[in-house]
Amino acid sequence: MKKKLAPFIEWGTLLFCTGTVCFFLVVILWDIVSKGASSLSWGFVSTPPANGMTQGGILPAITGTVLLTLITALVATPFGISCAIYLNEYASDNWSARLVRAAIRNLAGVPSVIYGLFGLSLFVQAMHMGTSMVAAGCTLGLLSLPYIITTTEEALRRIPASTREAALAIGATQFESIRDVVLPAALPGILTGIVLTLSRAAGETAPILFTGVAFYINSPSGGLNQEFMALPYHLYMLSTQHQAIEQVRPLAYGTALVLLIVVFLLNLAAFYIRYKHSKK
């Protein structure tokens, strides 16, 4: 009897672990979706906050997050791809490449709040950008750089050497072979990595805390050199700092749901690119 029961207990233990993890996910999604759905309406996503944040929508926070993510992409993508090309196409395995790789691994482990301090020192103060959209975007760009480099390098590595040799053998320069053959072939992989990285950046709060985010601004479409609103920070403020916390709770749930939707949409886009490419 004992012998027959043992496998079930063992299997059950592991199943319990897996089930608990899934339970966490389900609780998170269920709580936010079920309680946020009632706040979600066209008005909520298309109007600015009103009456000291107790009413109205979150339009400026949405546009702020979208713009911020775009700036992040503009900063991180060119440098990230270029650095990945350096590592995979030009340097393969010399000491300088090893040094760069070590730097990337360590950068990926640096806590995001420290990026916030770095952005404050470098962009806000030293480069006189002030607390602004650009300063925050640049900070998030630096944070995203190691991930974009790693995923791009991965995508480049999957292109076989014979593809490069084919281009070189008909008289292409190395740059031409990368531009015309290697990059187009690696594009789906690179795009997937970029979109996934941006979905992380869109949900980040700590790096923008001291570099430009604000709880409320008067002109919703302020310039790039001004402070801005963002979804994650809005959620943080609504749930911790507002004087009428219980009253704005539905708004907080709505904001959480919108943030979750933005992040999952980006993830879905990445998934789609990967799927479409794998079918080819």
């Binding site: 076989p160 014979s162 593809t163 040799e165 084919a166 281009a167 292409a172 015309d180 053959v181 187009p184």
Partner: peptide
Amino acid sequence: MVFQKPNPFPKSIYENITYGLKI
């Protein structure tokens, strides 16, 4: 040079020939 494993570019047949001409 012709390689051990066929390595056409991931492009159309026509572009495979014209790429070398273009550059």
